[in-house]
Every structure is written in structure tokens, then in C-alpha cells.
């Protein structure tokens, strides 16, 4: 090998040396775990429908139950193993959002219940709420400005 002269050259060399993530295997695991979580959600939804609960509430019940399961598994120290196996499969569904709130809450318990659990709970999930809510407000304002159905392609 010839001596490396520049930082760019070193970066290219390092990229070559660093093994890539096993993307096919990861995608396969993400697909079936993520799919399974959604399918479980759909089964809960169907049960709600049979019981005569309206659609909006049913979706909320699905979210809450999945959030509960995720928090429960995180508390049992199991969710990180699922996450390690499934990657985006457990991160992208609402279970990942719940895990990202529960895990820092548990982690920072040693710093107390107010500044530890209370404050650090949102270290990972906080940005999700900030960007989600801010974007939705902007959408609402745009809707008011145009106040027309043209934006909403119904």
C-alpha cells in the first residue's frame, strides 16, 4: 500500500476497510417484525370494529395498546433485544416511539424523578414531537390561508 497523503484519501481507504451492515438480512428482519407489529395492530382494530367502536377511537386504542406492550417489554429488558434484531422493524412502528420515551426514563432514574426521569424522558422522542407538532401547525396555517379544497386532494 502506498502512504496516505490526505484526509480524503484516508476517508476513502477507511470506508473500504469498514464492513457494511448486512443490509439484506436487516431488511428481511425489519420487514417481518414491522409487518407483524402492524398486523397485530390490525387484529386489535378488527376486534374493536366487531365491538362497535368507531374508527378514530379504534386507531387510538391500537396505538395505546401497542405503546403499552412496548413499554412493558422495555421494562422487562426485552425490547432492546428485539430492536437489535429487527432494527427499523421495531423502531418505525409506534412501538419504537414508546421505547424511545421509556428507555431514557429508566436510564436516568438514578438522577432522580424530576430532573432524571421527568426531564430526560424526551431526549430521543422530544425532537419527534417538536417536528411533528410544528409541521402540523404549519399545515394548519397554510390550510387557513388558502382555505380551499385545492390543497387537500380529496
Amino acid at each position: 500500500m502506498k502512504p496516505i497523503q490526505s484526509k480524503e484519501e484516508y476517508q476513502t481507504y477507511v470506508d473500504q476497510k469498514t464492513p457494511n451492515s448486512p443490509i439484506l438480512k436487516n431488511c428481511f428482519n425489519a420487514f417481518w417484525v414491522g409487518g407483524l407489529i402492524c398486523a397485530i395492530g390490525q387484529i386489535i382494530f378488527e376486534i374493536c370494529k366487531i365491538r362497535g367502536i368507531d374508527e378514530t377511537n379504534s386507531y387510538t386504542i391500537v396505538s395505546m395498546l401497542l405503546v403499552f406492550c412496548s413499554a412493558f417489554l422495555t421494562g422487562l429488558n426485552i425490547f432492546n433485544k428485539i430492536g437489535k434484531f429487527a432494527g427499523a422493524g421495531s423502531l418505525i412502528p409506534i412501538t419504537g416511539f414508546a421505547n424511545s420515551i421509556v428507555s431514557p426514563a429508566m436510564e436516568y432514574k438514578s438522577e432522580g424523578y424530576v430532573m432524571g426521569v421527568g426531564a430526560k424522558m424526551f431526549t430521543v422522542a422530544g425532537p419527534v414531537l417538536v417536528y411533528g407538532i410544528s409541521t402540523s401547525i404549519i399545515i394548519g396555517i397554510i390550510y387557513i390561508i388558502f382555505n380551499t379544497q385545492s390543497l387537500i386532494l380529496v
Binding site: 431488511c27 425489519a30 417481518w32 409487518g35 402492524c38 398486523a39 432494527g87 427499523a88 422493524g89
Partner: peptide, 14 residues
């Protein structure tokens, strides 16, 4: 639901 959810997760994984 299984297939659609799975595909969205694949996009995330990539």
C-alpha cells in the same frame, strides 16, 4: 397491514 407495514419498515432500515 402486514405487507404495507413491513415495506415502510424496510424503507426505514435502508
Amino acid at each position: 397491514a402486514f405487507i404495507t407495514g413491513g415495506i415502510i419498515c424496510i424503507i426505514g432500515q435502508i
